[in-house]
Structure formats: C-alpha cells, structure tokens
Design a protein around this nucleic acid. Structure first.
Length: 383
RNA sequence: GGAUGGGUAGCCUAGUGGCGAAGGCGGCAGACUGUAAAUCUGUUACAAGGAAACACCGCAGGUUCGAGUCCUGCCCCAUCCA
C-alpha cells in the first residue's frame, strides 16, 4: 500500500494507495471536522485548491448528525460529495480537548455531549463502529491524547491503556471489514503512538504497536503545549522505531515551519486546523511570513495576499478588499482567507515532494523556512 | 410660544448623594497546532507630568463632608400641541 519512491536524508517521498485513490506524500490533510471545512469551503473548492485528503471527526459526526444517518445516506463520501480519501479522527483528541466533559475508564470514555449534555459512551469498539459507518478511507485508532502537563506516571498508565485499546480497535475493525453490511470493507487502520515528551515511553510504545502490523502509524499527543524543540526531539527519537514500510502521520501539526522540520525527520502525513482557523481570523500565510489582514496597514493595500499566488483569492481580490470583508463580518472574507491558506499549505506540500524527488530537500527547507518564518515564530522556535 | 423626555469618552447606553463612572459597538493589537473557536484576551477621551490618586458627566452658579445624581438659570436635541 505504501510505496517509498525516494528518500532524501530522512525525508520520504511516497505514494499511498487506497480504495479512494492514491495519496502522494508528504501530504497535508485538510481538516473538516464536521464534514465541512469551516469558512464556507465546499468539497468543490477542495478540488480547486489541490486537496488530497479530507479529515473529519468521529466524535463530532456521531453527535451530529449521527453516524447512522450518514451510513443510511451512503457514507461520508456520498454525503459530502467527495470521492478522494477521507481520514476520520477517532475521538481520541476530544478526550483531551473536552477534558472537562468526560470520564476515562478502562472500557472507554464517557462524554457529556458539548451540544446538549447527553451522555455518550465511546470506547475502541464504538469508535471503530462509528468510523465504519462513516466509511472513511482511513480510520484512526481510539486513543487518549494526554495533557502536556500530565506527569510521567499518568502518561505511562495512559499509554498502556491506549495500547490495550489499540488491540481492541484492530479486532473490531477486522470484524467490521468482514461484515456484508459495511460500506467500505477496505477501511484502513492507523495506530497512534503516545508518551508525552518521555522518549523512553514513546519508544517502548512504538515498539509495541509496531508489532500489530497496522496500515499506518501516527505520532499523537504533540503540539499540545510543549515547545517546538521538545516536539522535534520526540520525533527524532520515535520515528526510527515506527515501521519503515508504513506511512508516518504527525497528528495535528502544524505551522509551515513545523511541517518542514517534521518532513526532515521522516513524517509523511500532516493535518492542522491552523490554515482554516487562522484564515477565519484573518491571518494568512505567505512567503514573507504571516499577515494579519485586520491590521490597519492593509486598508489601502491593493495587492493580492501574495503576489503571483494562483489561489482563488489572490487571482481576483486585494488585501484591502478582503480586509474590508473581514471588518464588515462578510463571510466571503473568511472564505477567501481560508482558501488562500489551504492552497498555500497544499502548494508547499507539492514543493516539498518535488524537492525530495530532486534530492534537494535540505536546501529547499532552509530556503522555505527563511521565507515562512516571521519574527514572531522565530522567537518561539529556536530550532 | 407651550408640554414632555433627553444631553455621560468616536457612537450607543447604565447610572436617582460615596463615581476613583459600568456595559455594548466601533477602533488598535495579541492568542489559537488530531476544531466546544465566525472564538477568546488585552487595550481605547486628550496633552503633560507624577510614587499614586489624577476625565469641564451640555454650560454657569448653588446646596452638601461629598454632586453625573438634588436646586436655580441658560444652551442644545427629540417628540407632541398651537
């Protein structure tokens, strides 16, 4: 399934074949939690801006509209009119982000719905069943993403439970993929490595889950408050222990600089809410750093967000116009910023793939970091 | 000409003797990493200084220990009546 085309240092140019088509890696998956990329972006737009994989969320779609509803309507692909790969996150991140609304037990997690407060139980089996109903291309294992401030003892205990959950996920997925009632019987399963910023726990966990021969391996629990240095240190430590013939996915990361660094450490898959959320907040990525289009200095700026950019926003509209739209709370302002940012990310991934193919990733990375890092990000990231 | 209700920071508004004046909008910034986020946070009358306190609350007087608040006069706005 995963074909390694070219290696340049640790950076990998790969090809991942799925029932919904080929994913050229390294790839940035575009996050559409509730089966939609926030900011009024349609799946038709995704075709235009070069999206390879759409990412949706198990917990959120289970709560609304309900995975049974989506199953009855033929699965996520048919529902949202998208025929390329979809990855569904398992709900494990909600164990972290909705920490105030859940209780963790051995059998799984009891959530209180953030919508209407009703009780929702999700364990490994439930997460797999929901993802099977959604019929995504790739399902993520149900894990716990522990807090960055959790202590070592808790991390160890949590990681051990995540391992036990992973075995249950694998069994349940195998069962579901044999059921005639299942929409996508070729659904893939990625396991998730945890361990906070404890290298030894990370490595031991990686070795344990590597034995389960899953379709891919993710590194989770990073970019949840630790420094960039710590994140890179963990990647340096753990990636070598993940199976080399399987794709490696760094969950929830990150800034363009984070991605450039992680590719250099052997990561193939990424996703992050930054381009969409920042876009909605008027922050746009360019090769001269990040701009905040709310700033007064763009009031009379007739240039596009980025000169030479061929995204749907830059092809037609000025910074001044988009600033006006944002200020006036016109939805189009956010939409244009989100489209630009996703296009920027997707285009950067294309550049990364080409650079690896041509064996010049180090030079590319150095050059791109110089363009992409603004002073603020430099201050936060000494790497 | 008469009646009534009003004038509080760029705008709108709370306030009926302890105000060192609350809130919203607008403005200016910041945060956000497997999305409880179209969110959240800070800041915002002006010039100067000061350790700090430190706003002509339409204007001018008055009562009071103390007034945005009570009293008197004036100016302005809105609505209504002639």
């Amino acid at each position: 399934m995963y074909e390694l085309i070219k290696k340049d240092g640790l950076a990998r140019r790969g090809r991942f074949r799925t029932v919904h088509g080929v994913i050229e890696t390294p790839v940035f998956m575009n996050v559409g939690t509730a089966a939609a990329i926030k900011g009024a972006v349609s799946t038709r737009d995704l075709q235009e801006i070069g999206t390879q994989v759409e990412l949706s969320n198990t917990y959120h779609l289970h709560v609304r509209p309900g995975d049974q509803v989506i199953k009855k309507l033929g699965g996520l692909h048919k529902f949202m009119v998208w025929d390329k790969p979809v990855l569904t996150d398992s709900g494990g991140f909600q164990v972290f982000s909705l920490a105030g609304l859940r209780k963790i037990k051995e059998e799984g997690v009891y959530f209180q719905s953030h919508i209407d407060g009703r009780k929702i139980f999700m364990g490994p089996e439930e997460s797999m069943q929901i993802q099977s109903n959604l019929a995504s291309t790739i399902a993520m294992a149900f894990d716990e993403c522990p807090s960055s401030v959790a202590n070592r003892d808790y991390i160890q205990q949590s990681v051990d439970r995540t391992t036990r959950w992973l075995r249950r996920c694998k069994e349940e997925m195998a069962r579901l993929n044999q059921s005639p009632d299942t929409i996508n019987r070729k659904q893939l399963l990625f396991g998730i490595n945890q361990g906070g910023i404890c290298e030894d726990i990370r490595i031991r966990h990686a070795q344990e889950i590597a034995e389960l021969d899953l379709d891919g391996y993710a590194v989770g629990g990073l970019a949840v408050g630790e420094s960039h240095e710590e994140m890179y240190r963990i990647l340096d430590a753990v990636v070598p222990y993940l199976p080399a013939h399987k794709p490696v996915y760094l969950m929830g990361v990150g800034t363009p600089a984070n991605i450039l660094e992680a590719v250099d450490r052997g990561v193939d898959f990424f996703d992050c809410v930054y381009p969409s959320r920042n876009g909605r907040h008027g922050h746009v990525y360019t090769n001269e750093g990040k701009l905040n289009l709310f700033n007064a200095k763009y009031e009379l700026d007739s240039r596009p967000i980025e000169e030479g950019c061929t995204c749907p926003a830059c092809q037609s509209y000025s910074r001044a116009y988009i600033r006006h739209l944002l200020k006036a709370k016109e939805m189009l302002g956010m939409r244009l910023c989100v489209l630009h940012n996703l296009y920027f990310y997707n285009t950067m991934m294309t550049e990364i793939r080409t650079a690896i193919e041509e064996g010049r990733y180090k030079e590319y990375k150095k050059e791109k970091l110089g363009k992409v890092l603004n002073l603020h990000e430099l201050a936060k990231s000494p790497c």
